[in-house]
């Protein structure tokens, strides 16, 4: 199996502060991969490096074998990588439907067209409806995105992320700040939408991580100290020492 996403010696420093100190990681096609670690370990920074939000200091990111060095976020997205954000990042003044439709435009080949009418494009409206159906927001179709509840906004965030049909999906703390029942809803949603796709996610909720992930990487102070299946990571003494100890004991 070839790697969908491959990181090689990736580092990032802000001034003299090194945040990511040489990360090597391979994520196979179709894998559900979770990145965990204590606060301030650099998980979100790692996400931002992979998706081109920040430039890396050294090292390389490969998406399906292609080096992403120097590409802007929109170019990386066009290569089939899509991400969500830790802090909800949607188009607040547009309707839920419009949000999803905008997320479909590029992948449906409309590009910067000023000769198509979006209202008359069947593929757009049907595609957007299907995604609203998937994320359970069909009843909120015409509400402004800013008026949705927090959990609905998170669901919309995921909907926008998957709409473009990217085969590598990166979710940054999809269940952050959610109640138990809302978390269950989002986990079910993630499981559904990530079928046959490569999923990379940062998550704090261990229940979610161990329930969803095929493999887990543990990031501590900008370095990956362990990668493996949930069982392997659970059993790894380094991990227990650094981070998981208390959480795992509580679970047993």
């Amino acid at each position: 199996m070839s790697a969908a996403l491959k990181l090689e010696g990736l580092t990032k420093s802000f001034g003299k502060t090194a945040v990511i100190m040489g990360v090597d990681l391979e994520i196979a096609k179709g894998e559900r991969h979770a990145i965990i670690g204590p606060n301030g370990a650099g998980k979100s920074t790692l996400f931002n490096l992979i998706t081109g939000r920040f430039p890396q200091s050294s090292g390389a990111v490969y998406l399906h074998g292609r080096n992403l060095l120097g590409l802007a976020p929109y170019q990386i997205n066009r290569l089939g990588l899509s991400r969500s954000f830790q802090i909800t990042n949607i188009f607040l003044r547009m309707s839920v439907f419009e949000n999803v439709r905008c997320a479909l435009l590029w992948s449906k080949g409309y590009k910067y067209s000023f000769w198509h009418m979006v209202g008359r494009a069947r593929d757009l409206s049907e595609g957007a409806e299907a995604i609203l159906e998937d994320i359970n927001l069909i009843e909120r179709r015409d509400a402004p995105a800013g008026m949705l509840s927090y959990a609905e906004q998170r669901a919309l965030e995921i909907g926008i992320t998957i709409a473009g049909g990217a085969d590598v999906i990166m979710l940054d703390e999809p269940t952050a700040g959610m109640s138990h029942s809302e978390t269950e809803y989002i986990v079910g949603l993630i499981r559904k939408v990530s079928e046959n796709k490569t999923l990379v996610m940062v998550e704090h909720d261990m229940g979610v991580v161990f329930g969803l992930a095929d493999r887990i990487s543990v990031l501590v102070y900008g370095e990956i100290i362990a990668t493996g299946t949930p069982e392997e990571v659970r059993a790894n003494p380094k991990v227990q020492e650094a981070y998981l100890g208390t959480a795992l004991e509580a679970e047993h």
């Binding site: 997205n77 899509s82 954000f85 905008c102 590029w106």
Partner: peptide, 15 residues
Amino acid sequence: NAVRDNPERAEFLGY
């Protein structure tokens, strides 16, 4: 409109 509301999100949608 999307760029007006949230230019960064638009970038991550391929635009």
